[in-house]
Design a protein around this nucleic acid. Structure first.
Length: 192
DNA sequence: GAAGCCATTCACA
DNA sequence: TGTGAATGGCTTC
């Protein structure tokens, strides 16, 4: 397990990236988690609490992959119309999709969300319709557990009557503002 | 297994 | 607007 963090040029936040090596030698690097922080000190205590070793570890098999990912995220946040989900495959980084989402339902939800294009938004009920399910709230529950926001663009899922939640929160706060910021970067104006 | 939790939605006042 | 019921999958015990 290793981690690195950086401050993107365009947003006043810190982004922590956690990685782990695949099970076998042949496997590449698996993206374990992406997490946002508003203060540098919060990252350090999070790392301590979760017993993360090797911050900015240089021994990870392929450090190039990490800097590629940081570049990709910076490009995306600068307004370039790239789809991180598509691009991450090109840099030989694995998402550990099946490991992260174990139930059929959550895999289907995440599949739909990860197919959303840059600037495209949907709603919890639209996803439900696609799955022939009325489990709108369950869809929210799945998205809440998304450990790799940005890559799986859960910020592109809005409620029928407004923003909906983000990162576990439903009331307007820093988290939801970040969701708004991301949508603004993508040029999405049709939300309240 | 059952109860309780949810990043929702819709109808009705 | 605002409340309250319906909803179904997931987590926790």
């Amino acid at each position: 397990m290793s981690a690195t963090y950086f401050k993107p040029k365009k947003l006043d936040i810190y982004i922590l990236i956690r990685l782990k090596n695949g099970k076998s030698e042949r496997d590449g690097v698996i993206l374990d988690e992406i997490r946002f922080f508003w203060k540098e000190s919060e990252i350090l205590s999070y790392i301590e609490e979760n017993d993360i070793e090797n911050l900015n570890n240089k021994s990870l098999k392929d450090q190039g992959v990490v800097s590629d990912l940081v570049h990709l995220i910076n490009d995306y946040l600068s307004g370039k119309k790239i789809n991180l989900y598509d691009n991450i495959k090109k840099i030989n980084m694995d998402l550990g999709f099946k490991e992260k989402f174990r139930t059929e339902f959550s895999q289907k939800v995440m599949n739909i969300v990860s197919q959303l294009k840059h600037g495209e938004v949907t709603s919890y009920s639209d996803i439900g319709n696609e799955l022939n399910s009325k489990a709108f709230r369950a869809i929210g529950s799945v998205l809440k557990k998304n450990p790799i926001p940005l890559i799986i663009p859960c910020h592109r899922v809005l409620g029928k009557n407004g923003m909906g939640g983000f990162m576990g929160k439903t009331k307007i706060g820093e988290e939801i503002n970040l969701k708004k910021n991301l949508l603004e970067i993508e040029g999405v104006m049709e939300y309240k």
